[in-house]
């Protein structure tokens, strides 16, 4: 899976979670840029991304990722 394909899939998952079909995200996007992405919703995001790529983030990864780009780094390394 290429980086672009991962980004596309992450984007689909997030649009679904936040019920926002027009959601546009890039590598620089952070939680603060997406309406509704608070600390509670972050748990849902983690779960859905884990399911979508069949991976498990570590505690450090969940705590450390700063933006979508870093999330994709971890996904890329795990799949």
């Amino acid at each position: 899976m290429s980086r672009e394909e991962i980004l596309e899939r992450v984007s689909e998952v997030l649009s679904e979670i936040f019920d926002n079909p027009g959601l546009v995200i890039g590598e620089e996007t952070t939680a603060a840029d997406v309406e509704g992405w608070d600390s509670l919703r972050h748990i849902t995001v983690i779960e859905e991304i884990e399911d979508a790529f069949d991976i498990r983030f570590s505690m450090k990864e969940v705590n450390g990722m700063k933006n979508i780009g870093e999330m994709i780094d971890i996904i890329e390394a795990s799949i």
Binding site: I43, E47, F57, M59, V62
Partner: peptide
């Protein structure tokens, strides 16, 4: 999901 417990004090996984 232990990480959720340590980070968010959730003893039961979202699954």
């Amino acid at each position: 999901d232990e990480k959720l417990y340590y980070i968010a004090k959730m003893p039961i996984s979202v699954h």
